[in-house]
Amino acid sequence: MLQIGYTMMTEQAGPRDLVSHVVGAERAGFDFSVTSDHYFPWLSSQGHAPYAWSVLGAAAQATERIPLMTYVTCPTKRYHPAVVAQKAATMQLLSQGRFRLGLGSGENLNEHVTGDGWPSAHVRLQMLEEAVEIIGALLSGETVEHHGAHFDVSNAKLWDLPDSPPPLGIAVSGERSCDLAGRRADLLIATEPKQELITAFERHGGGGKPKVGQLPICYDTDRDAAIARAHDQFRWFSGGWPVNSELPNPAGFAGATQFVRPEDVARSIPCGEDVEAVVEAVRPYAQAGFTEVALVQIGGAHQEPYLRWAEEKLLPALREL
């Protein structure tokens, strides 16, 4: 059965609200949760970007059942991979085995803050693969001495390790990232229901492993209000990965999306209270072979009514997929 997840969207809510929201998601019956890991919001209208790992630690203590996951952390610029491994091990202990570490090659929006420049896409993927090697070694209990093309690690060892390391997910967008994910990851992460990503992942060793997708929706009893909110806060979503990974700040995303109309957003994001519209938007993920889909409710101040609607109407309908 397809599992349905809840997204703690750090770009649209503050830390205390995010924890309260995931507690509500657990109560509503969501199967799992994921958390974005940003330094900036995509657009200024979203208005937030707290430190995701502090939020995750608090969420681990405030919840009992719901799995937690980064969706995704970039372990190459803003965070050194040795530090990411320590974070992940600690989260697995705090959550008592409910944590999964989702990794990706990152976006300029968040990683430029260290001032080291933004490498080309093929270099970013090389950096990610080297980071995954370091993280895996540390989480397996090794003492790591590593001097590679992009990272140095000197005599590193994790002193607080869980009995089982957190499963590792890798975000994919093409053949090379699917190759890396198939070989090194425990699960695939993607934001589009593309069959070719699943096929490539399985061809490189990902057969039988979970595949996690993500889908934005905008619930509101007033569909026009939902469309307006989705356009205001989520029109950046139309840019696609090649654009979204390169722009440096919210002003850049505002400029790049200035001609995106509300009706354009409404065609790509289910808006309003039509359960069947969400079911039909999720269906391509199930048909492509995804095993899990995390929903994003657009609007940090609109989570509680969404969670009630999800519990009463949406989740039961999606369980039938």
Rank of each mutant, 00 (worst) to 15 (best):
A13D: 03
A13Q: 15
G14K: 09
P15A: 12
P15D: 04
D17F: 02
D17V: 12
D17L: 12
L18P: 00
V19C: 05
V19W: 05
V22S: 01
V22F: 00
V23N: 03
G24C: 03
G24K: 09
A25K: 09
A25H: 11
A25I: 07
A25E: 08
E26I: 07
E26L: 09
E26Y: 10
E26H: 11
E26A: 02
R27A: 15
R27S: 15
R27D: 11
R27H: 11
A28F: 00
G29Q: 11
G29D: 08
F30I: 11
D31K: 12
F32K: 13
S33F: 00
S33A: 15
V34W: 07
T35F: 05
T35Q: 01
T35M: 10
T35G: 08
S36K: 01
S36F: 02
S36A: 13
D37K: 12
D37T: 12
F40N: 15
F40C: 14
F40K: 12
P41G: 11
W42K: 02
W42G: 01
S44Y: 14
S45L: 09
S45A: 15
Q46I: 09
Q46H: 12
Q46S: 08
G47I: 07
H48E: 14
H48W: 11
A49M: 02
A49W: 06
P50D: 07
P50M: 07
Y51E: 14
Y51L: 10
Y51R: 13
A52G: 01
A52I: 00
W53R: 10
V55S: 05
L56V: 13
L56G: 12
L56F: 07
G57W: 02
A58K: 05
A59T: 09
A60N: 04
Q61C: 06
Q61Y: 05
A62L: 06
A62F: 00
T63D: 09
E64L: 06
R65V: 03
I66A: 12
I66W: 08
P67D: 04
P67I: 03
P67L: 04
M69S: 15
M69I: 06
T70R: 13
T70C: 11
T70F: 08
T70W: 08
T70D: 10
T70I: 08
V72S: 01
V72F: 04
V72Q: 04
V72I: 14
C74T: 14
P75L: 01
T76V: 14
R78M: 14
Y79C: 04
A82N: 08
A82L: 00
A82W: 00
A82C: 03
V83K: 15
V84K: 07
A85P: 14
K87D: 05
K87S: 05
A88F: 02
A88Y: 04
A88I: 08
A88C: 05
A89G: 15
A89T: 06
A89S: 15
T90Q: 11
T90V: 11
T90H: 06
M91L: 15
